[in-house]
Design a protein around this nucleic acid. Structure first.
Ligand SMILES: [Mn+2]
Ligand SMILES: [Mn+2]
Ligand SMILES: [Mn+2]
Ligand SMILES: [Mn+2]
Lengths: 222, 222
DNA sequence: GATTTAATTTTGATTACTCAAAATTGACAA
DNA sequence: TTGTCAATTTTGAGTAATCAAAATTAAATC
């Protein structure tokens, strides 16, 4: 049976959820999964039990869910498609980086393997999407770079924005308008815990202050 | 309520079915509709009754179905998307004309209006798709050219292939390999009712004979 | 250890879409 | 006019996905 769009979305959400796990955690909690998919918790439970029957996930009642090897392979395929499509829409079609997420969210389920291969070829086997998110390889490996956020990187040291971990269109437009897109070089001038803010020097030496919450979503390389 | 992919497919099939109606016929028979969609006849009846409730079609039991103005508007929108996407995949992505139908069949339901507009713009508001099928305008008009088929056009007279009315990949590859794609100039040398065939002179003066059934699917302009 | 609470699961129901097979209809032919 | 038949509709049933609200569980608090 080929997986439905719904199943693909569940697997992808679990896959992404797993990458967010910190410390010794192994399982994505049902609440987090339901939240990520925008569905009722009971629905997630029912569905995950079905996925478990199909051998795509391991489900531990009251603890959470994780992917099997089979589930991981499918999830990586969907995520690869999503990110290739996003980059394609920006690079080839000329859409803006804050416009492409929703289209990719739908197209990832329906375009043919042939079209995805063609896109990958046109883009020259890219490694990251327009937001700096890594693109899983054709054989299902997710390249991992260790990145620091603007909350943890060294002060007074030039760093390059590598990734923006928030798909919200308004946030992305804010980032763009302040010249903080991936590829741009910036410097953290100061951090202030009391005011919960981070002071930055942008590409054009422009100074700006952003909240810690926003700063945590900007990942950089040294 | 925005229409589901299923509803869009029904409306599109009725729309296309209506254009195939000859003579005084007004209604698309349920059998033809079910056949076009690859579903059981009873399913079509049930669904059409629901579409009728929604005001998208007029349903006459035992006679057939036709679109209301509202249904026509939606159907034209889907067909426009389908054909723009096909042309985009050929012109921009570099896929072959026999590969694009299935991708378009799915993408037509999910891509955003913004992406469709961008595609229309990139292609310069095209009037026909890769198979010569007319593209409905943004306001829902389907441009109509009167075309003759190779069964009815004059003999020994140069004509230009304008449209191929069969999406089957093998058929399209046959047409392409014999230099009979839209735009190419050919001439009908002879028709033979007994052998059910048509003799052609191709672009390169190559002679070939094709069956009447195939010939009827090649539409030309004088 | 008992109690409260938050997360999770279960229950019961709904919507959308589908099929196979039985019943019906309407057109045509005998 | 009646019988036949093909097309169509109806019936009964099933799958996939969803929700709201009740019940349960496990963990944290008292
Ligand atoms: Mn999706
Ligand atoms: Mn992205
Ligand atoms: Mn379709
Ligand atoms: Mn076409």
């Amino acid at each position: 049976m080929l997986p439905s769009s719904t199943v693909e979305n569940y697997l992808k959400a679990i896959y992404v959820g797993e990458t967010h796990l910190t410390g010794g955690e192994q399982l994505v909690p049902m609440g987090q999964l339901a939240g990520a998919l925008g569905i009722a918790p009971g629905t997630a439970t029912t569905m995950v039990k079905a996925l478990s029957e199909s051998g795509l996930v391991v489900y531990e009642p009251y603890n959470g869910v994780r992917l099997t090897a089979a589930g991981q392979k499918l999830a990586a395929r969907v995520l690869r498609r999503h990110r290739l499509i996003e980059l394609f829409l920006v690079q080839v079609v000329g859409m803006k980086w804050d416009e492409v997420h929703d289209d990719a969210e739908q197209m990832e389920h329906v375009v043919s393997d042939r079209l995805i291969e063609r896109i990958d070829e046109m883009l020259g086997q890219p490694e990251v999407d327009p937001h700096g998110d890594p693109i899983p390889t054709a054989d299902g490996q997710l390249p991992h770079r260790t990145l620091e956020s603007l909350l943890t990187c060294p002060l007074h040291t030039p760093v390059t924005v590598a990734r923006v971990t928030d798909q919200d269109a308004a946030f992305l437009r804010f980032i763009e308008s302040h010249n903080l897109k991936p590829g741009q070089t910036i410097e953290v001038e100061a951090r202030d815990d009391v005011s919960d803010s981070v002071r930055l020097k942008g590409a054009n030496n422009a100074l700006m202050t952003i909240g810690a919450r926003a700063a945590s979503k900007l990942l950089v390389t040294g």
